[in-house]
Design a protein around this nucleic acid. Structure first.
Lengths: 196, 196
DNA sequence: GTGCTGACAGATATTGAAATCTGTCAGCGC
DNA sequence: GCGCTGACAGATTTCAATATCTGTCAGCAC
């Protein structure tokens, strides 16, 4: 869709605002149009459906939420240190989002669950970052070579679900969570390293 | 409650039946009483509340569902082999329940989520079994001694959430699930073993 | 022409009245 | 006495009427 007097970006901004204020169950396209001072028909000239609009808002949010991770994945530290840092960064980002504004976090959790295609892509992206770190670790001889990096990345990502899957968000306020992640990371890193 | 003309066991049987037929949302105490040919007041002489009745049904079901595990935990195999077998047995038990009768599985998933106290106890029990295996492994010198068995058991149980937490049941029909568990188990066992 | 409007049909959500359910208990029948 | 019943109050659920929303499109305004 080409840019027009009313930009796509403006609509996304308004939609995010409406979602924040009314929640995922109550937010309507009419609300978004009202917030922009246009008729709801106009919104449909920029997005083919309500679902597409919500998905676009979700994608923007996911990208912003995990903006810091790629830099960690390609950072200067040794791969094992970097892997630990990456997992901790991911956890802390989620934890802060969940604890700072639980209602908004719940809203976005609902949105994310709506678009499973988006989830798939996003998780693949995260696993790819893990795969990058693990691949480098293998190349440098820090990690064992008994499986390919993406398979191991998938296993590590699954294993740490408790610390990034929103399903477990209620547990993230428990002070033991950070320590649990540390213990689990120790275990996984010992499993990845050559010689143990 | 002492046994009476109408036994507690009979009520549990009837309640389970009603839940199976009507689902967790529609099943009522009146339905259970009707199935037994008594008034609903009678059910309340055996259980203090609907919640207590449902919880009792759930507990019975959980115990039956995981009846095979303690035998595996105390089996004759070497601890590392046993740990792998235990995790696979747990996964396959859940997988079969979820795939054989998805509707019934959904019903019990709802019931389990209702009684968080029960979940807690049950998970502790499972982690204790894992702890037993890991503790023996440490004693036999197969597993490293850098953390106490229950802490490691907790980490292993968390790490394998994808293969026992009902939240992930939709993924259990994917043929890759079994292999994913195998890869993850390899990784965890390498992390546990001395010398790698 | 280009972008927006607003009326429309069908789908979805809200509402409030009626029905059902939960939990209690006085009293019946064995 | 002992176990069960069934009527009751308050809470919850159901259902159907009503209102709102989604998505389309012919036409207006610039």
């Amino acid at each position: 869709m080409a840019d027009t007097a009313l930009s796509t970006e403006q609509i996304l901004e308004a939609a995010e605002d409406v979602l924040r204020r009314f929640g995922p169950a109550k937010a309507t396209v009419v609300d978004v149009a009202r917030a922009l001072g246009v008729s709801h028909g106009t919104v449909y000239r920029h997005f083919p459906s309500k679902a597409a609009l919500r998905e676009a808002v979700t994608e923007r949010w996911l990208n912003r939420a995990h903006a810091a991770l790629p830099a960690v994945a390609t950072g200067p530290q040794a791969p094992d240190v970097r892997l630990r840092l990456w997992l901790r960064t991911l956890f802390e980002a989620k934890q802060h989002k969940a604890l700072d504004d639980p209602e908004l976090f719940a809203t976005y959790t609902v949105l994310v669950e709506e678009s499973s295609a988006l989830i798939g892509e996003h998780l693949s992206g995260l696993e790819a970052q893990l795969g990058l770190i693990i691949g480098e670790g293998q190349h440098e001889g820090v990690f064992a070579l008994d499986a390919d990096p993406l398979t191991l990345a998938h296993a590590v990502f699954q294993a740490t679900a408790h610390f990034h899957d929103p399903v477990y968000a209620p547990g993230w306020s428990d002070p033991r969570a950070a320590e649990d992640l540390s213990v689990l990371t120790d275990l996984l890193l010992r499993g990845l390293r050559v010689g143990g």
